[in-house]
Design a binder for these strands. Structure first.
Lengths: 232, 232
DNA sequence: ATAAAAAATGTTGCATACAAGATGGAAAGC
DNA sequence: GCTTTCCATCTTGTATGCAACATTTTTTAT
């Protein structure tokens, strides 16, 4: 079910990117992880060229970066970059809700269905699915608002946020996050966009607050800590 | 001064993209324009590979698209896509101003300097520079707010908006646009972010209103009109 | 003269080859 | 034993070659 990647990689040029983004959203790819061109080309059964082209697109989307002649790596945002990313996300999502008139019943239904899926994933203990759905809620919101441009921007920002959360060992509780999603939908259903925007603002501030900007699981810091330990 | 592109294209891998985006913002590249790989590779003195990689990044940024085995083309957004793009932009820029506390004097200075440059370009009749600066004001705003992530997103959205304006023969007056920029800065200086956000909202609604969604200078419509004319 | 077919041309799609540099480990020197 | 140097290896950077398809032009048949 997953091994047929080789077949599709030729037909769908965006498959490689999609898979990587999905894996990142699911927490199956960690920040700092190396994505070798050869390695990927073997996985997807294509030449390095196609892999490279996918990486170029992912680079433009701020998901990966390249270190000259060393390899491609999933981004490891600094504290500052992390702040900027979440700030941008907050701006976008708050603005999105503020500038929209109202939400149709169909939208509300779709969002509630999404939250049900979130709850199911949380209950079943499927961490990957849980991570994916909690992040994808925001993309889903933009999609149901009917704006693919917003949805695309949010997918990238959300992916980066999930990576940031992984890097800074977010302590954000899934239940709490999901609950906040419900609150936002409630406000939307009541047609109170201002309140929905406020709740979204709060929600994203929680996301940032849950980050532990000290315990960076960076390779460098890891090393430092390890060295300090051994020289004692 | 411009012909030394060949030299730099190797050193700065993003030169090709930057040039294309700049040209688009300046109105020197029209929507629907074909960007041949060979053509560009000769202009920049590199092989098709590097051109292609740049195009992949531009594709991810929504500036160009590829038509299979026909070539790369500057985007020609449909009416719907145009709306979504401007809506996304409005969401982002309004949200940006709403979620920011205040603007420092240094920021105000930088923005005022930018507006002076706009006025100079308008007065001197330099249409390319005028187009560039009027669009870049928004990027500048995000930059002075100190958020490169926002700035990057806005650069892409603004570029797309400029292309949309070209495609739909925007009648937006440069003076008016510049005047609205001044108003926004004034509100920022007074620390009235809500008002600044409102003005930005209005400004971007003007941008959209100035579009003529009927007179699409599309090749297809051109052809249709031409054929109607000849068969008369 | 017109329309259909066929060849010629041009352009991207993808793979591969080789160059250039980074990395890690072995060997050599102290 | 420790450091330094050098070499083998691995990885990306860039160019190029050829195949596949789209378009245009020419030819041919009616």
């Amino acid at each position: 079910m997953r091994d047929n990647a080789e077949k599709d990689a030729h037909k769908n040029p965006h498959l490689i990117e999609d898979r990587i983004v999905h894996a990142a959203l699911s927490g199956r790819i960690a920040p700092g992880e190396r994505l070798g061109e050869k390695e990927l080309s073997e996985i997807f059964g294509v030449s390095r060229t196609l892999v490279r082209e996918a990486m170029m697109r992912l680079q433009a989307r701020g998901i990966v970066e390249v270190s000259a002649r060393r390899g491609w790596f999933v981004i490891e945002p600094s504290v500052e970059e992390a702040r900027h990313t979440i700030d941008a996300r907050r701006a976008l999502e708050v603005g999105m809700l503020v500038t929209i008139d109202r939400a149709s019943p169909a939208m509300i239904r779709a969002l509630r269905a999404h939250v049900r899926a979130e709850q199911k994933a949380i209950a079943s203990g499927d961490r990957a699915e849980r991570s994916y759905l909690l992040g994808h809620f925001h993309v889903c919101l933009a999609e149901t608002l009917g704006n693919p441009v917003l949805a695309s921007l949010l997918q990238d920002l959300t992916t980066r946020t999930v990576l940031i959360a992984a890097l800074y060992q977010s302590s954000h509780d899934a239940h709490e996050s999901c609950g906040e999603h419900v609150e936002i939908i409630d406000a939307l259903e009541q047609g109170n966009m201002t309140e929905a925007a406020r709740l979204m603002d709060v929600h994203l501030r929680h996301v940032e607050k849950a980050l532990n900007y000290r315990n960076v699981s960076n390779r460098l810091d890891h090393l430092k800590a390890a060295l300090q330990g051994t020289t004692d």
